[in-house]
Design a binder for these strands. Structure first.
Lengths: 280, 280
DNA sequence: GCACTTGTGAACGGCTTGTTATCAACGCTC
DNA sequence: GAGCGTTGATAACAAGCCGTTCACAAGTGC
């Protein structure tokens, strides 16, 4: 009913940043009526790649649940007298949800009451949007720290499966015995299956810094990977060279020599919903 | 820098491990010089059954660690110019420690900076002690809340069984005679059997604070564990090294010389629904 | 055919890990 | 409080893995 929404520039999957800092974009909801305030906040929310949803009033708790929020900002003034009951209700139903009350002048008693009820923070208006965002970050950080590590999905491709929590790839139950770099590389490639990745981009994302001119490391590691893949799964070809460009990951049956010529390959490439752009 | 040796009883795990089993009294430290303020705060801290410790200045991080704090309140004004560096240092070394800055007049930029550095909250003086306490409670609550990974009371792995209530591991009825740290380490590893845990993560969760660069403690304790496991259960191998990453707990028969060639190792691990599937 | 790119194998060297020893700190008994 | 055994932190050395680099072969496109 009352949902303006703004999607951050969610990069498809910047999955493999070098030191594994994994952060899905935060989903933030704001119950507030001050359009000027909302605007300046939204600007900063966007800059962080978060997703923002603006609510103009009390939304049933069920709906809040279904929004799968990462944080909630509330202006109690908007809700009027039932605001306190609503706050209590939300905090009781969603104890894991960070809640920041951001409202006008208040008394100590009010602030203490909100915090006791279950709110995580209280920020008086007028306030600087930067501080609001910083406080949201601090609370979310605290919550994430204690949270169980996010389970990463197992990627399946051809015969192999990539298990991030083991830093290893398998054919059936058998390990490919990859080193760390090899694993990071195959994870990056398989995570962007069907896409041609340029050497410099690969290097940047696996090694974490810019590739020096003439560096052949990527080639060498692709070779190592191919060797291990070939040994463990000889019926498939996984990594394809694009001359003058880079490499593309796409599992294909090994006997598709004829198929490749006809461009049939795209029929095999499967699990990636990413748009597949064949390169002649 | 490494002056005071604060080894000793160090049991920092209870806050990070034991979910909500028992709520030990919160240990609170306050770096502040205002005796009047300290007095009114202390009154309320006592009323809640917390333990309070007053520090008159910057205390070495090592000492903070050994205090096993549940929260820290800092008045930056007391620390002077180096206060910011100190704050950063503390937050880096003890990311799990709730830190509240409670100090005099401030600018938005200062508050944002502190929150970014790792502080959980900023409360301007003068403030009502009740609000300070309520904010501490809210932060601690948030930190405790998201820790639901219910650890199985007894973990069975290979020949050994781990009994948390006894702080000991056994082969049959025979104790492995593990020290406290050794036990915490094997509990963590076995509790995440099959997963590769990175050294820093292990250190953070067993020792309770951030691992210093170059620290080899995890390796040394892994060796001690392996030694005791080997002695008590020579037919099995439990802890596996992942070069450049960390360690993985997975019971495997020791005679896997032939098995390794067939990739048996992964089939046995995790004592889950996987059954041994002979290869070829 | 020529220039350039990519594949391949091997060797070097650095960094990671295994292992042992030493010492400070602590708890215990007396 | 002194003496003694235990625990944990740290240093030092050895061993070995792994990433980088080089040289050369093979392949690609013009």
């Amino acid at each position: 009913m009352n949902t303006a929404y703004t999607a951050g520039v969610t990069t498809p999957q910047d999955e493999s940043h070098a030191p594994g800092s994994r952060t899905a974009p935060l989903r933030l909801a704001i119950i507030d009526g001050d359009s000027g305030f909302l605007q300046v906040v939204e600007k900063r929310v966007r800059a962080r790649g978060w997703q923002q949803r603006i609510l103009t009033g009390a939304v049933p708790v069920d709906e809040l649940v279904s929004m799968r929020l990462g944080a909630l900002v509330v202006d109690l003034a908007v809700l009027g007298a039932p605001g306190w009951a609503y706050l209590e209700q939300v905090c009781a139903a969603l104890p894991a949800l960070p809640v920041i009350v951001c409202t006008g002048p208040s008394t100590v008693a009010q602030r203490v009451r909100a915090l006791r009820i279950g709110a995580d923070d209280w920020l008086g208006k007028p306030c600087h949007p930067e501080e609001l965002v910083a406080r949201i970050e601090a609370i979310v950080r605290r919550g994430r720290l204690a949270a169980p590590p996010v389970e990463r999905p197992i990627v399946e491709a051809g015969e192999i499966s990539i298990k991030p929590d083991q830093f290893q790839a398998f054919v059936g139950t058998r390990s490919l015995d990859l080193t760390r770099r090899e694993f990071e590389l195959i994870r990056l490639l398989a995570g962007n299956a069907g896409q041609v990745l340029e050497r410099e981009a690969i290097y940047q994302r696996v090694w974490g810094y810019a590739m020096a001119h003439g560096d052949r490391s990527v080639d060498v590691f692709v070779r190592k990977l191919r060797q291990k893949l070939e040994r463990a799964s000889p019926q498939w070809r996984y990594i394809h060279t694009h001359f003058g460009v880079g490499y593309r990951f796409a599992p294909e049956p090994a006997d598709s020599a004829a198929a490749e010529d006809t461009g049939l390959e795209s029929a095999v490439e499967a699990f990636s919903e990413e748009t597949y752009a064949p390169v002649s």
